[in-house]
């Protein structure tokens, strides 16, 4: 990823004598899908928010399909139902690896996996969330009892802690996070609707470039501070995609 891709959009004002002054306003809104997708490189790891259809940034995934990046690693709760945007990315041959907690046998990801045509890493769902949290929080590894007694621990480092067998897990960072919010302001502060948080706030923390689509736009100061779930410091770009 280029350094440019991480910069927020800034309004540059020009003084009367023609010299550009420092950006005076943080404005993370982008105004086209192409701008939202700028700089996503081939080979990127994409953290994809959502659970079922809820909180899933489908428009951004469609934008990623248009943008053209390939050889992607996709991190999502599941391998996607047929008809989903993940299925479309898979069918276009743009995904090198899928990291998820399950794939449905009756889906393209399941069929590709059965044929050995897709690399899939299955991770317990809570471990997946915590590995992304760790990536965002600067935790370089953690031990968890989840999966320690199972096939998933084969060949991996375990340790008995407090009488329980635990498995060493590493952070799961992303190059890019694609997330969906309910409301956003120009600082990138985000709120979510009902159960639509799911993976979105954790992924926002875990990626170098976090791109949010929002259903609603709020003026700066309009979102009550205590209702902001993802502070804008974790968000790089926001695209308004009305419901």
């Amino acid at each position: 990823m280029t350094g440019d891709a991480r910069q927020f959009t800034a309004t540059v004002s020009t003084a009367a004598d023609g010299r550009a002054t420092l950006p005076r306003m943080i404005d993370k809104f982008v105004h086209s899908m192409a701008d939202a997708m700028t700089g996503i490189a081939d080979g990127s790891t994409i953290l994809l928010g959502g659970f079922g259809d809820v909180g899933t940034p489908t428009a951004l995934l469609d934008g990623l399909i248009q943008q053209g990046a390939r050889d992607l690693t996709i991190v999502a709760v599941a391998g996607g139902r047929d008809g989903s945007a993940i299925e479309q990315l898979l069918s276009l041959g743009r995904v090198r690896k899928l990291i998820c907690s399950f794939v449905r046998p009756a889906s393209l990801s399941g069929r590709l996996l059965q044929r050995g045509d897709l690399e899939v890493e299955i991770i317990p769902q809570g471990t997946m969330a915590e590995r992304m949290r760790a990536a965002g929080a600067g935790i370089t590894g953690f031990y968890t009892p989840t999966g320690a007694d199972t096939l998933l621990a084969e060949g991996r480092e375990t340790r008995e802690i407090g009488g329980r067998l635990c498995l060493l897990e590493y952070p799961l960072p992303g190059d890019v996070a694609l997330i969906e919010a309910w409301s956003a302001d120009r600082w990138g502060n985000l709120t979510y609707r009902d159960s639509a948080q799911n993976f979105n706030p954790v992924m926002a923390m875990a990626a170098k470039l976090t791109i949010a689509m929002t259903r609603n736009v709020a003026a700066l100061g309009e979102l009550a501070p205590e209702t902001i779930v993802t502070p804008g410091i974790f968000v790089n770009r926001v695209l308004h995609v009305p419901l």
Binding site: R104, Q114, G126, T150
Partner: peptide, 20 residues
């Protein structure tokens, strides 16, 4: 999973729930 060789595995959140 029904067998160690089964390619399509569906762990979901069961392992986290079962131990916790």
């Amino acid at each position: 999973a029904r067998s160690a060789d089964e390619p399509v595995k569906q762990v979901g959140g069961a392992m986290d729930l079962a131990i916790g």
